[in-house]
Design a protein around this nucleic acid. Structure first.
Lengths: 339, 339
DNA sequence: GTGAAAGCGCTAACAT
DNA sequence: ATGTTAGCGCTTTCAC
């Protein structure tokens, strides 16, 4: 089972190893006939060029580093897992391998960086989700090309792949408005996160456009991570303070699920007494009762685009900065009631 | 920011590159004094050996391939994600990188194998969870050392890391028995899966040891994947056929959650009217009502052990076969009632 | 149109 | 106790 080297191919095709190499790279100076001979030998021998040898001479590792925080990777919902898989799929189309590693969300500037950075064993980086500032600072000292996915840090050269959060926020809000809702609450967390911020921006845009008031006390934003527990808390505060709303737009599904739990615990019927819409579209949404309406983020596609972009940058075919905005989609399920 | 080569180190330490190389490998022929000089230069230059160059001469890639099915990777519960992270952590301790890839669960023998196999760009394989038979057949043609985690195929040389499913099954069953349950149902799926099979074995062992009868019509095993939906179905069948049991042992948490859903939908109080215990201990267990008692599988540790084992095999320090059995643990929560 | 040869960074056998 | 050197598999320049 093929452990052939370029020499073996050369011998079998009766050409020099230089010719084999050039043929593989589809060099114009090699006529089709010779190429055919070479490729026949390659197939026959089940030859695959050695990654190491190639890397050595090209001074490229042929690897892409994929980094996310442990928290994100271990989240119940396979959100970043989907993004990774998109990148992985796309990697099959290129000659790159992906090295996945996680970092701690409490990364300090004197913590050890991932080994593949120190050893320069990657040609570029994909960073998915929010990562700590000190980490970004450290990593920028090495000058790898970096593509950020689902997070927008403020670095100089910015290559990012994001869902269209603003439009998503508008989509969700418009859906509620179109269903006759006028008093709409917004719950969120970690508001410095650019994505969450944009979703709220979309919310406000739509409210304004519809001539509806955005009431401060209908907005509940917790400081930290917008997860289930905080969704519960936010809903609790909202309902205790003010019962004067007919729908909630949650900055993501996790918080929405928490909020729904609160409503269930307190006998508030969904959607009869209060409608709710989330954001992300993660698997759990379909498993809860009632199924949650939400905004679908194209997770796989984000991974695919990130991979395409980093390869483009490495091959020097890209501009100084670029921002890929992926369209999101309204998913109507049963958590929103027409008034 | 260090792109130094072994030459630079040699120059700075005023020795030959051979000495540097030997010092790095802590060769005995190099006296401590020289080593100190060398390491000082290494630190100074922030030198890290080139993975490619090393790989080229050693004819090793320095990579481990980690393979699982897409289904498993994208499962809502981050079960295999935890296993992967364990392997990732352990990889930090070694000189290996991990290449993660997924395969389709419908893999056919003429499907393309992962690229790192074809290109021989891994020195060994970790395969997590059940993978299709044709895949195993294909992969065995290349003779990479393989460690299987959480799955036991019948290959010749067997290196496996498993949770102690039999003991787990006994633990769960004994817990129910100790709480006064005598009529206990078992629900499961994919019974050819060695893990599920072992859990049932443990169930039967405990029942027998306690002098209790294992009633055939209290065992409901679906053909396919033991997931939520099938848990619901199994519970439904069980309750329709026979109300004559006070507790259910579910082969895993996913099925348990499905079964609980059925009970809730049909007004069967948990645990007052029926106790239930699962297996796996995944995050969701704590989020449902009532919190599910279960058997905890040490997922991270399994990844760690798998990585340790594959490294050992690659370094030729292992026996022909070996089976690492990791202890499981009973987690008492609120889904089991004392009779 | 094709081949020879240098060299990528490293290891290890062989010299000194 | 340390250095010299061949060679791992490949790319690419230069020569034929």
């Amino acid at each position: 089972m093929g452990n052939a080297t370029i020499k073996d191919v050369a011998k079998m095709a009766k050409v020099s190893i230089a010719t084999v190499s050039l043929a593989i790279h589809n060099h114009e100076r090699i006529p089709q006939k010779t190429k055919d001979k070479v490729f026949a030998a390659i197939r026959e021998l089940n030859y695959h060029p050695s990654h190491s040898a190639r890397g050595l001479v090209k001074r490229k590792s042929g690897n892409i580093g994929f980094i996310l925080t442990e928290d994100h990777f271990l989240r119940t919902e396979p959100f970043y897992t989907h993004i990774f898989m998109g990148a992985e799929f796309e990697a099959h189309e290129s000659d790159f391998y992906i090295l996945l590693t996680t970092i701690n969300s409490t990364f300090k500037s004197d913590n050890k960086l991932p080994r593949f950075i120190l050893e320069r064993n990657v040609d570029g980086l994909i960073i998915a989700g929010k990562v700590p500032k000190p980490f970004i600072n450290e990593i920028c000292k090495y000058d790898f090309p970096i593509v950020f996915v689902d997070f927008l840090p403020n670095t100089k050269r910015q290559y990012v792949v994001l869902p269209d959060n603003i439009t998503g926020g508008e989509l969700a809000t418009n859906f509620l408005i179109d269903n006759g809702h006028k008093k709409i609450a917004f719950i969120g967390g970690d508001i410095e996160h650019p994505s969450i911020n944009d979703r709220m921006k979309g919310f406000k845009n739509s409210m304004k456009n519809a001539g509806l008031e955005v009431e401060d006390n209908l907005i509940d934003v917790v400081e930290d991570y917008p997860g289930r527990a905080n969704g519960y808390i936010a809903a609790e505060r909202l309902f205790k303070k003010n019962k004067n709303f007919s729908a909630i737009f949650s900055c993501n599904d996790a918080m929405a699920v928490g909020a729904m739990q609160y409503m269930k615990d307190n006998g508030i019927k969904i959607p009869e007494e209060c409608s709710i819409i989330g954001f992300d579209d993660v698997v759990a949404d379909n498993a809860i009762e009632p199924p949650l309406s939400t905004i679908r983020i194209p997770k796989m596609e984000m991974g695919v685009e990130a991979m395409k972009l980093i390869v483009k940058i490495i091959n020097n075919n890209s501009k100084e900065s670029s921002k890929v905005l992926l369209p999101v989609e309204l998913v109507k399920r049963e958590s929103v009631q027409r008034l």
